[in-house]
Simulated scan of single mutants.
Amino acid sequence: MKSKTSISSKIILTIFMLVIILPVLTLLVWTFTERWAWPDLWPQVFSMRAVDEILRRKEELIKLFASSILISLVVAVLSIVIGTMTARALVLYDFPGKDGAYFLSILPFMVPGTVFAMGVQVTFIKLGLNNNVLGVIIAHLVCSLPYAVRLLMDGTMAVGNGLEEQARVLGATPWKAFYKVTLPMLAPVMLSSFSMAYIVSFSQYFLTLLIGGGQVKTFTIVMVPLLQGGNRNIASVYSTVFLGVTLIIFGVFEWAAGRLGKNYGSEYYT
């Protein structure tokens, strides 16, 4: 019985890997393809034209990535800070309107993105937040916060506040008890929340276009029109760079989380 289960698991895992790997391989092939007509299974003409064209725009590309990464990092940090406080309030405390606060925290899940963008644009115009970076960050934050809050609520439920209360009984201040005891245990969940908020912000197109008004340039603002325009080799180069930078950023997150966990662990046990 166990062997059958193991074989089924391997088959399912292989299928999932192929579903992920095959599109990426196709994307890489299109990066160096000039002509690939149906029904041929292999490109007829290879070319470095798309890569050369992107390299000629490297200064523009660097600015786009700097803008996109900065906006996404700010959104992710704010999501973690606000999400942690919200999750702790909803899980560890009872207060009037708690159910309403929880509903509001997940409300962006239920509202279609286009409806939210059209509605919030009118408000942002009145507040002077349209066509600027601050407005884009706030709009991205509204979309990414529900993911962070939901993940951090699960993590807070698992960790609880028993050890933190014991630390306070032993003389630790509320901040020191949270920083020394709870934060290290929440670090993996916070990393997951940070990553989710970052990728939600980094991949936003319509919301950035509408709130930014074309004045706030991000990578998706440039990449998506290329994907829709039929210029597949140029779009594939942009998509490959997009994928590569995202993987590098997540690698840095993992490395930082590992170092942070080791530092917290050494401090905790000493």
Rank of each mutant, 00 (worst) to 15 (best):
A172I: 00
A172Y: 05
T173M: 14
T173N: 15
P174C: 12
P174N: 05
P174I: 02
W175F: 08
W175D: 13
W175P: 13
W175A: 15
W175G: 15
A177L: 14
F178D: 13
Y179G: 14
Y179S: 11
K180A: 12
K180Q: 15
K180M: 13
L183M: 11
L183R: 00
P184L: 14
P184G: 15
P184H: 15
M185Y: 02
L186M: 08
A187T: 08
P188H: 12
V189N: 13
V189G: 12
M190P: 04
L191D: 03
S192G: 08
S193P: 00
S195A: 09
M196S: 05
A197C: 06
A197K: 03
I199C: 01
I199Q: 08
I199H: 03
V200I: 03
S201E: 08
S201N: 05
F202G: 12
S203W: 02
Y205D: 04
Y205R: 01
Y205I: 05
L209R: 15
G212Q: 02
G212D: 10
G213I: 13
G214E: 04
G214D: 02
Q215D: 13
V216I: 14
K217V: 12
K217C: 06
K217N: 07
F219A: 04
V222T: 15
V224H: 09
L226M: 13
